[in-house]
Simulated assay, not measured.
Amino acid sequence: MLKWIAPLLFALPAQAFQFEALEGGLIDLDDLRGRAVLVVNTASLCGFTDQYAGLQRLHEEYGPRGLTVIGVPSNTFRQELGSEEDVAEFCEVNYGLTLPLTTITPLRGPDAHPFYRWLAEQGAVPRWNFNKALLDTEGDLVAFEGAATRPDAPRLLRAIEAVLPE
């Protein structure tokens, strides 16, 4: 079930966050202002890993229309490969990913990335891999879906369509 979250509840928009990019440099959510953003915590050795293919399709289909899909590899649930190099190779060889990926990032606990601490404050806590946080063009969280919601799920596609820039 899609959880809609009222943007007025947030003190800090998501644009204030940066991730280290797997290929080097930063993925700065502030630079994505004006675009819808789908942030997905991922893992290479998870039963849901085949969702990478759907995320790539979203990237290709909706990217030109104003959606950025960001994969956030994490070992929080102990299902990620041992190094960023292994993750990059796995994603390229098995899925041909061209969507932006971050370095391996903690999601929960004292070392959690600030973005995931912010999500937790909003009541959107990843309970497994491949949770999807949809941000509107202003960086407000508008939907949070669990791992069982596939990237091509009609309700997720409707939520994406609703926040694409005009």
Rank of each mutant, 00 (worst) to 15 (best):
L97T: 15
L119W: 03
R57D: 15
V93G: 11
P64M: 11
R33S: 11
R33E: 12
I27F: 07
W128Y: 13
L119P: 11
T103W: 00
N41H: 02
V93P: 01
G123C: 08
Q122N: 07
E85I: 04
D50Y: 14
H59G: 03
Y62N: 02
A112F: 03
Y116L: 06
L58H: 14
P110T: 08
D111V: 06
G96N: 13
F77V: 06
D86E: 15
T102M: 03
L107C: 07
A88D: 02
A112V: 00
R127I: 13
F48T: 14
E92S: 15
E80R: 08
N41P: 07
T105I: 13
S83Q: 08
D111S: 15
T49K: 06
P73F: 09
E84K: 00
H113I: 04
H59P: 07
F48R: 14
A120C: 03
Y62C: 03
W118Y: 05
E121F: 02
R57L: 00
G34K: 08
L81V: 09
E84V: 02
N129I: 01
D30L: 14
G71F: 11
F77P: 11
D50R: 02
P110M: 01
D31M: 09
R117T: 10
W128Q: 13
L29T: 00
Y95I: 06
T68N: 08
T103A: 09
Q56L: 07
G34V: 03
L38G: 12
V87L: 03
R35D: 07
G109N: 04
P126E: 02
H59L: 00
T102A: 01
D31N: 00
H113M: 07
D28Q: 12
F48G: 02
L101D: 02
L58E: 14
L67N: 01
E92L: 06
E61K: 15
D111T: 12
E85L: 06
A124V: 10
E121S: 11
T68L: 10
L29V: 04
F90D: 06
I70A: 12
R127W: 06
W118T: 07
L38K: 13
Y52K: 11
C91L: 07
A124F: 07
L32R: 12
L32F: 07
R35S: 12
T105S: 02
I104R: 14
L32H: 02
V72A: 05
T102Q: 10
Y116M: 04
T76W: 00
P100C: 12
N75Q: 00
Q79N: 08
F77L: 09
G54S: 06
I70T: 01
S83N: 09
L58F: 10
W128C: 13
T98G: 13
V69L: 12
E89M: 08
E60L: 15
T103S: 06
G123N: 09
A53S: 14
